[in-house]
Write a protein that binds this DNA or RNA. Sequence first.
DNA 1: AACTCCAACTCTTACGTATGGGTGAGAGTT
DNA 2: AACTCTCACCCATACGTAAGAGTTGGAGTT
Lengths: 196, 196
Amino acid sequence: MPKSSEPIVHLPILAPREDEVRSLLAAKLPASPDKLLQVGELARASGKTVRAIHHYEELGLLKPDARSKGRFRLYDPTAVARVRWIGKLHDLGMSLAEILKVVETWGTAPSASRAMAELRIIYRGKLEETRAQIAHLTALEKELEASIAYLDTCDSCGEPVTVAPTEDEGEPEAPCGGCQLRERDAEPDLVAGIVA
Amino acid sequence: MPKSSEPIVHLPILAPREDEVRSLLAAKLPASPDKLLQVGELARASGKTVRAIHHYEELGLLKPDARSKGRFRLYDPTAVARVRWIGKLHDLGMSLAEILKVVETWGTAPSASRAMAELRIIYRGKLEETRAQIAHLTALEKELEASIAYLDTCDSCGEPVTVAPTEDEGEPEAPCGGCQLRERDAEPDLVAGIVA
DNA sequence: AACTCCAACTCTTACGTATGGGTGAGAGTT
DNA sequence: AACTCTCACCCATACGTAAGAGTTGGAGTT
């Protein structure tokens, strides 16, 4: 099959003029001489899979800046930041649908400052949520620490029942006296639940 | 199917024999004269739905201590604590599958100390995960803070473009001078992604 | 320079997966 | 009447994975 050796969008390097500014601001102009990326390259650069990027496109979160003559998706290098941004918001616990709303809000806002204001509101909400999440996880951390500590003391109570290679194999052993004497109330929830 | 006489594990409190261990481990003795609960009662008492309890059973997390002659599930009152415990671990971010591993580890360990040792291992792993998660979220928290700060300065840069009801409606406005002069690199990822 | 080859890449379509249950349906139990 | 039983299909999310076919770009050849 003959191919006219032209990646479709391929403008030679021209003199940098006022357009330069434009490309800096709304750097989505596919006219920039930057090398466009194929979906696989974008995937590698952004740490996502090709499938994920396709998925984002299906949802309307991301669109190729061009297509090769063979219908390959082509992306402006700035798409890397975009995909990373999506990933971060997702990490923050936002669903892709929510992220889409942000994108749409941004795109349809009547003014730039308006858009930024709305973005701030969303981010502030997320910040609170994130802090709550951290608090929650910190609570879990404490519980785990307490439970581990409890189990540790169990190990070192009466008999030298160690975790390390012991001699007992197969036959059940009786719990140590300490365990039997210990108050039930002293058990961390994470231990009490299973022992109960 | 007819259950062969014995309620599985049923031993009164004896000397610390091997069976003692079992009963301590799987302290589910349905032999106590306590009133057994139907699934609906257990559900109400534990704050879960009947379906959820059925689900836990499907996964192997929880088993009725008996069945009525009409095949109704009957639970020992201690099951309430068990279900709450499951709920708690789940609330704290463990999947039911992970909780199941804890249960199985506990139930199949050859000895009490062994069980505790394995439980410790699981809890330690979870602890690490949790800390990693916290670190991750903390990083995101910083990013959000930075992004919000950035957007704040945007608002107070050049023109008095406020969030409050402005006069401009409909026609997009150009970004303020400050925004144009600002370095792209200065933009936090959470902002750069959408602006780009 | 033009042509041929080929591995690697990408296309679209579409069903599969894991989670934690929800929601009946039809029938039996208390 | 209120409860419970056992199927068994349904939801939403965020992709995974496979299939069958077309595309790209460079190496090698003429």
